[in-house]
């Protein structure tokens, strides 16, 4: 096993060992638990699984839990090692600093994708487990979707969107972690302002949030979910034009954020100054 593979596996194990990953598990399980609560208290005869599944997977797991866990891990991807003074072991071996960054980013992205993917599967199971086929036909009364629904297809769309979203958010928050001396507060401010508020307002500016390309991907796979956004028809057409995936934009954001992070990790000492001076 070469140094890159060793660093990758080390980071995967390290991510799974960290205390904060328990928070990730807990957050990923929250929407699943909420669906279970809905099912317990909802009369079984009236229960329609489409809405709880979509709302919990998209609005809770993908748009809230996922960015939060990416903030938790991205802002500390390198700086936690620097603060613990263990970064010195990774950078006095035969790997470039940028390689250390990219390998660690990839390893954390894989772990988060698996955990959040499991969360999506959990929501799916909690939503559709034991549901009669007749209940999978969504009636028109919610004016959002009507007709037969294929839960498997929607789960697949989310499982495809999760790694893309993790890649984007993790790269962005890794960059903030390296560029700022207060990464956590800056990342949270960005998340609340741009992702939670602007990204959900019925205005054209929502396209500037990172959740927009993720949603565009989802809309491409599941056109019916547009109705959940409750956008005016003109705006919906402008924001989610037909036959666009926004994948190149998202990958571009990932590439730029990782490139800038690699530059920062290469030029910055990342050693607490008080230590360097004895």
């Amino acid at each position: 096993m070469g140094p890159i593979a060793s660093l990758f596996l080390f980071t995967v194990r390290q991510t799974l060992w960290q205390r904060k990953v328990a928070v990730v598990y807990l957050l990923a399980a929250v929407p699943c638990g909420l669906v279970a609560v809905v099912r317990v208290f909802h009369p079984p005869a009236d229960y329609m699984p489409w809405e709880p599944f979509q709302i919990m997977t998209q609005f809770v797991l993908l748009m809230v839990v996922l960015p939060l866990v990416c903030i938790l891990h991205g802002s500390a991807l390198i700086t936690s090692e620097a603060e613990n003074r263990t970064f010195v072991y990774l950078t006095t071996r035969r790997l470039h600093r940028a390689t250390v960054l990219l390998v660690r980013w990839l390893a954390v992205a894989v772990v988060l994708t698996i955990v959040l993917g499991a969360g999506a599967v959990g929501i799916w199971l909690a939503s559709v487990w034991g549901v009669e086929p007749a209940q999978l036909v969504v009636p028109g009364r919610w004016a959002r979707i009507e007709g037969p629904w294929s839960p498997g297809h929607d789960l697949w769309c989310y499982l495809c969107a999760i790694p893309v979203a993790v890649a984007g958010y993790l790269a962005l928050f890794t960059l903030i972690g390296l560029a700022s001396s207060r990464p956590l507060s800056l990342s949270l401010s960005y998340f609340i302002l741009l992702e939670l508020i602007v990204g959900n307002l019925p205005i054209a500016a929502r396209v500037y949030s990172l959740s927009h390309p993720v949603r565009t991907l989802l809309v491409r796979g599941m056109p019916a979910i547009q109705r959940l956004y409750e956008l005016p028809p003109e705006l919906a057409k402008a924001v989610y034009p037909p036959d666009t995936t926004a994948l190149p934009e998202l990958l571009g954001i990932v590439a730029i954020a990782l490139f800038l992070s690699a530059v920062l990790v290469t030029v910055r000492e990342l050693l607490p100054t008080r230590l360097a001076r004895e």
């Binding site: 096993m1 070469g2 072991y89 071996r93």
Partner: peptide, 9 residues
Amino acid sequence: LLARLGGLT
């Protein structure tokens, strides 16, 4: 770990 990061396989 540090042996492997140092290039030993």
